[in-house]
Design a protein around this nucleic acid. Structure first.
Length: 273
DNA sequence: CACGAGACCTGTTCGC
DNA sequence: TGCGAACAGGTCTCGT
């Protein structure tokens, strides 16, 4: 689920507190347990349990779709993948069904990593580059200019949709926001990246930024049974709107499969030239 | 280098 | 109603 706007929202909730749960900035770890050990990518459970207690959370941020916790002497990274979520609650309440990792703090609170599908992963490292080193640029970073983006697109020859999902090309865009951005930019998802004109490349970058910023403004999207409080799902233009009217021209939205991912387009607005 | 298939998982919804 | 198929916000690996 969680793409850039959702992860950004969760990072902010953890930093500032949300819905009665406190901000966990400054909290000190007391104990870690892993009901599903494979959730921990690196290091070993024993090494994590030795390293974490006594460390404090100094900052909470996001890079790509990773939650990044800067600790007093290391980094804890969390990737929610498809169904992950983080709750903050009193340490004495009963854990929930799909809790995969439980972090107890020395002040009576607890952070729980819950993940029905078990795809989510957690890393602890002293070198961020080990895990984040191959990521592409952040789409909302103003350092990334339209002509840079044009050059990046032309350095590859790939279909637009799978390229936008490639985290080494651009960091943080997932299936929802790529469909929304391509529709806003009026580009067909199978157009080849090196065939875009400078104007089309600029439109695409602007569209990516517009949908990501709207997602962040609305606290992300909450769809299906994974509810996180955001409401961007009410503003989807094409994503999961197969058969419904395109908000621009009224043509029914069509679902395709591109790069093995469900893909939603308006066949009128997003034609291949 | 680009792409497709398969793997990793559980839960919900769809179609007959 | 019941049951299997299809589908779900992500990413990795392997073979062509």
């Amino acid at each position: 689920m969680p793409e850039l706007p959702e992860v950004e929202t969760i990072a902010r909730y953890l930093r500032e507190g949300h819905n009665g749960s406190p901000a966990i900035l400054g909290f000190r770890f007391q104990q870690v347990s892993l009901p599903w050990a494979r959730t921990l990518a690196t290091p070993s459970v024993a090494e994590l349990q030795a390293a974490l207690p006594g460390q404090t959370i100094d900052t909470i941020s996001r890079r790509a779709k990773y939650l990044v916790f800067t600790l007093s002497s290391g980094f804890l990274l969390v990737h929610l993948r498809m169904s992950g979520d983080v709750r903050v609650e009193q340490a004495d309440v009963e854990p929930q069904r799909h809790d995969r990792a439980l972090f107890t703090f020395d002040n009576g609170w607890r952070a729980a990593f819950n993940d029905a599908r078990k795809f989510g992963r957690i890393w602890y490292t002293t070198d961020l580059n080990d895990i984040l080193g191959n990521l592409g640029p952040e789409p909302l970073d103003p350092v990334l200019q339209a002509d840079d983006f044009y050059q990046l697109l032309h350095a590859r020859r790939r279909q637009l949709k799978p390229l936008l999902l490639d985290q080494t090309f651009l960091a943080g865009v997932g299936n929802i926001y790529s469909d929304e951005a391509l529709h806003l930019a009026k580009l067909h998802p199978t157009r080849l990246s090196d065939g875009l004109t400078p104007d089309e490349a600029s439109r695409l970058l602007n569209a990516i930024r517009a949908v990501l910023e709207e997602g962040i403004r609305r606290n992300g999207a909450s769809i299906d049974w994974v509810y996180r409080g955001g409401d961007f799902q009410n503003s989807f233009r094409v994503y999961q709107r197969t058969g419904q009217a395109c908000p621009v021209c009224g043509t029914p939205i069509v679902r395709l499969v591109v790069g093995q991912r469900g893909t939603h387009i308006c066949p009128y607005c997003q034609q291949k030239p």
